[in-house]
Amino acid sequence: MPVTTIDGREVHVDAEGFLTDPSEWDEGLGKTLAAAIGIDMTEEHWKVIRFLREDFQTQGETATTRRVQTVGGFPTKQQFELFPKKPAKKMAYIAGLPKPRGCV
């Protein structure tokens, strides 16, 4: 896995820049990752990202758009407003979690 330096510390990322070790993440890093894809984090953004982080702790996988809506309480429309065009991928990127994947 490639290692890169963000905010002065080394983190493990894949070739697309997604963190490969969720434990290397903190909110400061999340803010930097968000800025890298043009998102200025507001409290509304953080609510979603914190849900994703907490859900990952118990589930071991990144919550789907539906799960963010039905369990987290953030309607899909709102996810698209906060993280335009590709919310699932952008939320995972900012939260330092694996992006949505199929089996192949």
Binding site: P2, V3, T4, A15, G17, A36, K89
Partner: peptide
């Protein structure tokens, strides 16, 4: 390869 976080998210 050691990508930097900025610019390695092309499909966004």
């Amino acid at each position: 390869e050691t990508p930097t976080p900025v610019g390695i998210v092309p499909s966004f």
